[in-house]
Design a binder for these strands. Structure first.
Lengths: 194, 194, 194, 194
DNA sequence: CATGAATGAGTGTTCATTCAT
DNA sequence: GATGAATGAACACTCATTCAT
């Protein structure tokens, strides 16, 4: 079990932890099961991670970082439709690429404890802020409907989170592009025609 | 402590549990704190409830029941706008009326364990089914945009859940009617005008 | 195992802990052995005591309190010999009466950790202060040899501690009165006659 | 790290261990901190010492050896006062010269475990035996007060240990000669003049 | 019915020691 | 010899649940 690269060993444990957390949820996930899945000894775990919560936090932080990088600001000077679709496509891509982590993000990390709730809220707030600014820009140009940009941002995020939650948790059989189109259509036009 | 009605005693404990669960989250909520808040002895708790998970489940079940009763089917023969707004208004009303329970529903109950995840999924699926049917009816009448009704239903629920989650967790200062209008506007027209 | 008086239950556990600590030393004493000796369940221990260190500290504190009460100030106006002998007799009596606790005091509590070292030092300093004052009084009356009263106090305490340590740890077969006389003789006259 | 003498490397580790043991106490001293202080790798430690207890034992054994060599038998044919003072002076000198080790001896090694208690007892008994014989000789010559020589030996050692313990642990500001004189005065004449 | 003292299974974490390179 | 990554035995403590009074 000896000379693996240190970074590789971290990844190994991280991947095992991700799978166990996704399968069992945070509290039902036992260190024992994680190290068994990673094929390392109990003590090795603590060589690479502070504690159970620490590794969970790292999984979430990495996912947030990946997600953050998938999102880019919309430039209102250029055609927006493709930019928005690309954003949606990248977000959906990142989340569907690693469903275990997505389940952790959208399910296990929710309501874990006040500290974690804050972390989640902060991340969504950051995304919301970017979205809000884009919406405000768009409103100035008349390509976004008037209304409280913050609320619109929250609603848009909620819609996306839910569809991805359902796809992840229920294995709703939808192709990525289908999801992207549905989200885009919904955000752009809603669905009521009364 | 003598002459309290049995049902009243249940309520007392239930309310205490709800507050503690909302304040601490499921795992950090200790039976000790619940019984202290309810002003009963430890053993008394188990006279009224099977176990910790049992009382939590009852809180969630009651909330779901209340929520279910707030939702009524839209009759496409009559003017739909008011019917939809009424539905939204009732749902928002129920959830904002008891924020502790709403926090439990939208945060603590999420990712608790596979069994609970299923319960949540089932409830949202039931709501989604009703919504889907209404949407399908609407599509037949041309008052709902075409598209996969199931996805539309999921997106609509996600948007509503998120705004209420934010209002509950962040104390976003929004009036009920404001929320109702924002949701309705979003569902009906989206926000892009490109 | 039920309805014993709460104070009695504390005593029961305290006595068991004292025996185990005395037999094994602080670190080798396991909670398991203490509760087994006390005939209670693991959890019961924590119902009565904060933690392992807490019960140890209580044992030491109680011993110090008992010891403190055995010591009285010497009144230089009255004949001092009997007063001193009485003090020595009471101290020796208290320590030989419960050898397990004495072993804990003179052996296990020593060098446990910086916090405990301080507690010990503080206690001995208090005793030393009383002794020092008595010695200073005595020096004024010419019944105590001149010299740094603090050093004399320390030396006197050391002599007493050591003889009791040896009696406790080695079962040196000495009667109480023998010990008292030896200490008194030593303190009063030393042993060199050159 | 290459060309260091094997014996030198041992010394290096031994010195580091001594400092860490003195600073933290036996149990709070971690191998990690010792090897870090010594500037060697974890495994290297075990190349030079059996285990943690082994190195601790060696520190104590060496200290006892040094101490043993400082003590010489008093020849009753020659003037004893200087011989005794020289003995005290040498003992005090050895102990104050390396306060870290003295703290280990008088504090950390006490009550470590039954095995160590025995080692301490044996050493003090050996010293006590030598002292007892000197005292018995002295009693035959009338230069030592009558009384149980063993008890007198124990009392004398206790007095010395305590003053050195206090000087070491409390940084009692006393010069060596002051200490020597105080001890000698105390042993020779006690302090009561009633 | 109500009480609260007693229970004990369950688990995260530490750290001395080993051993492949 | 030297290294430091890996090991896993050991243990204090928590807290939901039970049950004698």
């Amino acid at each position: 079990m000896a000379q693996i690269d240190k970074a590789e060993r971290r990844q190994q444990i991280l991947a095992a932890a991700r799978d166990v957390f996704a399968k069992r949820g945070y509290h039902a996930a036992k260190i024992d099961e994680i190290v068994a899945a990673a094929g390392v000894a109990r003590g090795t775990f603590y060589l690479y991670f502070e504690d159970k919560r620490g590794i969970f936090e790292e999984i979430v932080d990495r996912a947030f970082a990946r997600l953050g990088m998938a999102i880019t600001r919309v430039d209102p000077a250029a055609p927006v439709e493709d930019q928005i679709k690309d954003n949606i496509r990248r977000i959906v891509g990142v989340l569907l690429e690693d469903k275990a982590t997505t389940k952790i993000l959208l399910s296990d990390a929710v309501g874990l404890d006040p500290g974690f709730d804050r972390k989640l809220l902060v991340f969504y707030e950051e995304v919301g802020k970017l979205l809000r600014e884009s919406l405000t820009d768009g409103q100035a140009l008349g390509i976004v409907a008037p209304g409280d940009a913050q609320i619109l941002a929250v609603l848009a995020m909620g819609a996306m989170k839910e569809i991805l939650y359902q796809v992840t948790m229920r294995d709703l059989a939808l192709g990525e592009e289908e999801i992207v189109e549905a989200i885009y259509g919904f955000l752009s036009r809603g669905f009521l025609r009364v």
